[in-house]
Write a protein that binds this DNA or RNA. Structure first.
Length: 593
DNA sequence: GTCACATACC
């Protein structure tokens, strides 16, 4: 037995070893243990005789490095399908049932429910078990449960140590509970306990996640000794809150760098919608011979998605294949999203179907892509498949579903899913969902129904919802309701020059020149300028940005000539019977000014 | 033994 366990578990021999290990173990204790073949016959064995005679457990008791091997066995069990065999899986858990280590083992495998069962059942719980449970929940993003365990710990009069506090501080970061985080900080300070580097890092991270950059900075400045993690927390914190100059300053200042800080910085630029600069950083990183990893790729693909930079996106896809980067769920999803946003629907679906594992975000990206491409029915059937496979849709998924209905003019389906969203899936609609529904109803000419929906929005409809109604009113020439919507829009956002322009346009179309003049006057009095629209296009890996009536590009004349030809070729689907396409396709709505 | 950093759908 000893021999089998201590030999190395190479991937080819592991399966064999695992089976051998189990058959040996089971047969070695067969005199004390009857063979249980079915679920009902099996009983949880945790008696002392079994524990003492179990060689695996005694090894676990002495040397924890076997934990890693146990983990390997476990993952092999899942891969080979043995884990679904109740007998084998229960055996594995039973091997260790009396050991506190099993809690850590189960936690590290993500089996928090099982871990908690063992934890809850055990009569003796040491501090490490408490900490394992708490940190297990925090790492899985289940901080509320971590908090509950912490409360229980307090009731059991177990004094928390530094590791407990680190876990709880992490929970405060996730739950955005700055107040409790500060309390934990002062608890440590008041007890005059030593602030280790991990504790300082955890506190800084908590302050950063709660947006308290100053408190994080103060801690950072006071640290005598810092690790790469300390620097990373500061860089990513500043980057997340858009303080990119500060992030860059720290990045340049830090003594030693690894890939994580590059990723934090690139991710910051992408989140700040400064994707071009993010890609420049990526290039810089490569000239410095730093190997990008999966996380880098995810951010860069997201940058390409924002910019519509298909060529660079394809290059990144090749890079991933060439360098055999692991196609994680995030990376696959980022690829799906990049192809979708760059308008390459075939590749979007190909990558989607090639992915070995997909989660709800992957499905959401695909549904959104199909919706955006006008394949409304496909989007809906993907949604049904997603739900069928047991994945939970979220508010973003429903945005895709509703916009699929909107683009396809599927009014009845839209209404059905909008209702299901709250009743079946318990997802409260946000203003974007309302805006989508108002748009769907509005385009179909159901203005009264749309207006009713706007009135029914909890916490008052925001500008996007009124904007959708205003658009529908303009399309269907309902001046009275359009006026109402526009005035509401001006009340909500008096600085949005677009509303004034569109309202004036509506009046002009309705031959109400005097009212149009009034609106323009109002805009002038409020000192508003029309904001120019901007779009970008990628050609041979270069990204070009164009503003409305922009003539700065050297080939401007040819570009406009091409644009005019393209506009002439656009097939107009007669979806809105009353729409004035000549006005929509006029070089821009602002040209009348 | 347990603990601290970067990533995808709006």
């Amino acid at each position: 037995m000893m021999h089998i366990i201590s030999q190395s578990f190479s991937s080819s021999s592991l399966h064999h070893c695992t089976l051998k290990l189990f058959s040996k173990t089971i047969s070695s204790s067969s005199s004390k243990l009857p063979h249980y073949k079915t679920k009902s016959q099996f009983k949880w064995r945790t008696n002392h005789v079994f524990v003492q005679t179990n060689p695996l457990l005694s090894l676990l008791e002495t040397k924890c490095k076997y934990m890693n091997q146990l983990k390997q066995i476990h993952s092999q069990m899942i891969l080979t399908g043995i884990f679904s065999n109740v007998f084998a899986s229960s055996r594995l858990i039973a091997f260790c049932a009396l050991s506190e280590k099993v809690i850590h083992f189960l936690v590290s495998c993500g089996f928090l429910e099982d871990a908690y069962k063992v934890f809850d059942d055990s009569s003796v719980r040491d501090l490490v078990s408490w900490n394992s449970m708490i940190n297990g929940y925090v790492r899985s993003g289940r901080s509320r449960e971590a908090l509950m365990v912490f409360e229980k710990m307090k009731m059991a009069s177990v004094e928390p140590d530094e590791v407990t506090i680190i876990g709880m501080v992490g929970a405060c970061g996730q739950l955005e509970n700055l107040e409790f985080g500060r309390k934990l900080h002062s608890y440590f300070r008041d007890k005059c306990l030593y602030f280790s580097i991990p504790l300082c890092n955890a506190l800084m991270d908590m302050y950063m996640k709660n947006g308290s950059l100053n408190e994080a900075k103060a801690l950072f400045d006071r640290m005598d000794e810092r690790t790469v993690v300390s620097w990373t927390i500061m860089i990513s914190g500043f980057a997340k809150f858009g303080c990119l100059d500060e992030a860059m300053r720290l990045f340049n200042e830090m003594p030693e760098r690894d890939i994580v800080q590059w990723n934090a910085l690139i991710g910051g630029y992408v989140q700040a919608k400064r994707s071009k600069e993010a890609l420049v950083l990526f290039q810089e990183m490569q000239t410095m011979n730093i190997k990008p990893n999966e996380v880098t790729m995810v951010s860069c693909l997201s940058a390409c998605a924002q910019l519509g930079a298909l060529d660079i996106g394809i290059w990144l896809h090749h890079y991933i294949k060439r360098h055999k980067l692991c196609l994680t769920v995030s990376l696959g999803t980022a690829l799906v999203d990049m192809y979708a946003k760059c308008g390459h629907i075939e590749k979007t679906l190909q990558v989607f179907h090639e992915m070995p594992i997909r989660n709800s975000l992957t499905w959401t990206a695909a549904i959104g892509a199909l919706a955006h491409h006008g394949n409304g029915h496909d989007a809906l059937s993907y949604f049904l498949k997603m739900v069928d496979s047991g994945l939970r849709p979220d508010d973003v998924t429903f945005l895709g579903v509703l916009s699929a209905c909107r683009h396809g003019g599927l009014v009845e389906e839209g209404k059905k899913f909008f209702t299901q969203m709250t009743t079946k899936f318990k997802i409260p609609p946000k203003s974007k969902h309302y805006a989508c529904m108002v748009d769907l109803l509005g385009r179909a000419g159901l203005l009264e129904e749309a207006y009713e929906l706007v009135q029914g929005v909890s916490n008052e409809a925001d500008a996007s919802v009124w904007g959708a109604l205003f658009f529908a009113c303009r399309v269907h020439r309902n001046i009275e309701m359009g006026e109402k919507a526009a005035l509401k829009l001006l009340e909500l956002d008096p600085g949005d020059s677009g509303t004034y322009v569109l309202l004036a346009n509506m009046y002009v179309e309705a031959n109400m020149q005097h009212k149009a003049r009034d609106v323009r006057k109002m805009m002038g009095e409020r000192g508003l300028q029309k904001t120019p629209g901007c779009s970008s296009v990628e050609v041979n890996g270069n990204i070009f940005e164009f503003f409305v009536t922009d003539k700065t590009h050297p080939q401007s004349d040819q570009i406009y000539e091409c644009l005019i030809q393209l506009t002439g070729h656009i097939e107009i689907v007669e979806y809105f019977p009353y729409i004035r396409y000549d006005l929509l396709f006029d070089s821009n709505v602002y040209s009348a000014w």
